[in-house]
Nucleic acid binder design. Sequence first.
DNA 1: CAGTGGTCTAGACCACGGT
DNA 2: CCGTGGTCTAGACCACTGG
Lengths: 256, 256
Amino acid sequence: MCYDKGNEWTGRRRSMISKQSPLPLYYQLEEYLKQQIESGEWKPGDIMPSERELSEEFRISRMTVRQALTNLVNKNILFREKGRGTFVSHRKFEQNLQGLTSFSEDMERRGLASGSKLLYFEQVKAGDQVAEALAISPGDPVYKLKRIRLADQEPLAVETSYNPVSLFPELDQKIFEKSLYHYIEENRQMRISHGTQTVEAALVTDEDAQHLMMEEGQPVLLIQRVTHLEDGRPFELVWSIYRGDSYKYRIEMNRR
Amino acid sequence: MCYDKGNEWTGRRRSMISKQSPLPLYYQLEEYLKQQIESGEWKPGDIMPSERELSEEFRISRMTVRQALTNLVNKNILFREKGRGTFVSHRKFEQNLQGLTSFSEDMERRGLASGSKLLYFEQVKAGDQVAEALAISPGDPVYKLKRIRLADQEPLAVETSYNPVSLFPELDQKIFEKSLYHYIEENRQMRISHGTQTVEAALVTDEDAQHLMMEEGQPVLLIQRVTHLEDGRPFELVWSIYRGDSYKYRIEMNRR
DNA sequence: CAGTGGTCTAGACCACGGT
DNA sequence: CCGTGGTCTAGACCACTGG
């Protein structure tokens, strides 16, 4: 009986992977396994079929199976034990939670409608601090954008961003309205790689208090972010001021 | 001339990698390349020798070279471009960026002497909030520890931590003085896996103001952390209150 | 002992980038 | 066009865990 079921599976599984597809085989296998785990077909702690079994079932070489499994191990979806096997992780996190996300992605994850109100968008000369963060020379042109960020129509943050004109000469307001990250990755085909953030507590300034409809003397979260492309060039510097009473910065991370 | 230099290198390089070593070849190559980059032999933006070149020079197969390079790419030390080559990243070498670190590890990274002043250490019954965070039942025993954390002798934070007695029945003050993380990983041979933190801004309370030698009405950074073992069980809940004027929470992260 | 993941080889064909 | 990284194969031997 077990064998029968196994063979059924073999057929179903093999059909999920096509050598005709333009997608790499390891990627197809990776997506298939991920989907099976997400759908609960295999549960945390379950042992996976061995590499040689998967190799035979899908009629692909063991090295290709390993490439798929290794990627899932790196994403913390599977873990391996020498001499024992490969298992489904206990992690409940969808990976990526410590990922670099934009305001809109952040709000979407929290189930809030995101919006923004433009204060201004202009081209200015970089000051010393901006120039250093963006690895350009003081006086070089940068786009400066200031917006009030809304969550469910309520003002949540004031955001000021700087982007070097030399990197994206054609930036305009519409690109920001949709999503700068989307524009960079899809329209410009460049890859966003990593970023540095600092988070600190401060008291709200008079100007920001007006924008955020807060009283004086209340605390705010002050976040600075510098984000880099894959070749290391910084492409944005963002200063955000969040209302202390309505926003928590949340991060999930791994040891090592 | 270029060729001569190339051949010199070939000899030197090859000698760095031994098939006799118990260490895997890909790992030896990885360490060698990392060291060359750290020492400035190759600089950010430089193109690396091609995979086929490295393969010939070190007399190992291209797949093995790829394993070494792939690991370095995953660590953000190198990046690849299709049809062009493999390059040294511009990324600074701080690694372990988004890692889960203890207060002492954090201070060490900032070049500050860390210390702490015990306020109390006792066994109490878990309240609802603590029980939920630690995935135990309300009323279950937990260790509660409250300390003032010092950086270069100055008070920087007030920290309250909770650990389930059921997980570590033998915890004592001395273990905390040295390092709980060290104890768990070295003495107990358990693996710390992941954690969740929230960071928010608030005004200092009267009690904390005294501990931190702050005036009333000043902002503080309020950090909550829940940390898990590899099997998913939470083993600590920590509340930290940092002086807003002297501490920035810093995090580096990758997209995707 | 048989089965597992870990490492390694020597080929192969592809799509891509720059000349 | 040639050289690059990206993918893939069909083997191989090893060290390790379990019964």
